[in-house]
Design a binder for these strands. Structure first.
Lengths: 191, 191
DNA sequence: TTGCTCCTCACGTCACGTGAGGTGGC
DNA sequence: TTGCTCCTCACGTCACGTGAGGTGGC
């Protein structure tokens, strides 16, 4: 059993957030103490964990409540996909706003503009445009050759894990040792 | 002279937005008609145009008010730069949230994850990591050499204009003709 | 009279944050 | 008694949106 502040601390939330969840019925404490203090059970904590997972994705509380009542998994998928589109929409708006601030600052549309690409997008495009596995390898080899630490930073920015980066760079170095033109398709990995 | 709805229409705003701006003192009409109707002058319209420019960049109304009173240009720059950082912060949060939704949907973190980089960020990082103008040139030359049409697609994705792309690729081709190691810093452009 | 534009409250939104004023437990 | 945690209102946030109830102009 937890007091309200203890539970909040455990999940990195504020006390008033839990008060709010109680008010709107999203998370009702298991019971109350004699003095009226909210008492949360371990089950409540588990429910809160799920709530937090959704909340960290910025799913609206009312949607979270719906998702937790309706355990129909295809409905959950649909809701999450709709939310993903909403986040995409906001991302586009943000980009446009950043571009406008840059303009107000008198900067050229580029290089300080805000065009943005996701890795998946980039990779699809490059492939569609005719870059094959060989080309990817060559790019990595060259990058590793010109500026190893920039290569590292670049891969981190793309969201690769440390392990994936290590593997990629090691292969790129080995491949590069044979000369820039060497083309082994040892890199079936991410980028 | 405009009525409130006419002015709102002209700027693609709602009537209630203008009512709001009047209430908070951001845009007071030049005067009122005998019946108490708000009458906006051409000067008001000009002021509203400026307001809209900031609003489209999501600058808070209180900040806009401050910017329009204080015509000190360095103060304006500072405010806009601070706002740009705020937008950056939101962008990072959005990316993390998208990644979380992907995880909830059971998708792998990569390659369908949403790590995303802006060109400005990418460039800053690469520079910070030690890639110099020479390195940028070499990358472009190689890219043009390995997969010309992929290079085009890539630059388009980064938001370059057709003219900028043409200039970049032509230079890359010319530089590349001398061999991959050729390093003229003719590319002072964008990427 | 009809239809249009306009007016001023006043409350709602979303997820809480922030006091105010008070009580329970060691 | 002191400190701590807890309680319940109730109002504020940000940029408006949405009625409610009423008036002016052609």
């Amino acid at each position: 059993m937890y007091g309200i502040s203890a539970l909040a601390r455990r999940f990195g939330l504020s006390r008033s957030a839990l008060l709010h969840y109680d008010r709107i019925g999203l998370l009702r404490p298991d019971g109350r103490s004699a003095a009226g203090y909210r008492r949360y059970s371990e089950e409540d904590a588990l429910r809160l964990e799920t709530i937090c997972r959704y909340r960290n994705a910025d799913v609206p509380l009312t949607t979270i409540a719906a998702l937790m009542t309706n355990r129909n998994s295809s409905a959950v998928r649909a809701a999450l996909e709709a939310h993903l589109e909403e986040l995409d929409r906001r991302m586009r708006i943000l980009r446009a706003q950043q571009a406008r601030v840059m303009t107000l600052l008198g900067a050229p549309a580029f290089p300080d503009g805000i065009p943005v690409v996701s890795v998946a997008e980039l990779k699809r495009m490059l492939r569609a445009a005719g870059l094959d596995d060989d080309g990817f390898v060559k790019l990595h080899v060259l990058f590793e050759y010109i500026a190893p630490s920039a290569h590292q930073t670049f891969l981190e920015a793309l969201g690769l894990t440390a392990v994936e980066i290590d593997a990629l760079r090691t292969t790129a170095r080995r491949t590069g040792d044979g000369g820039i033109d060497t083309s082994e398709s040892a890199l079936d990995g991410p980028v």
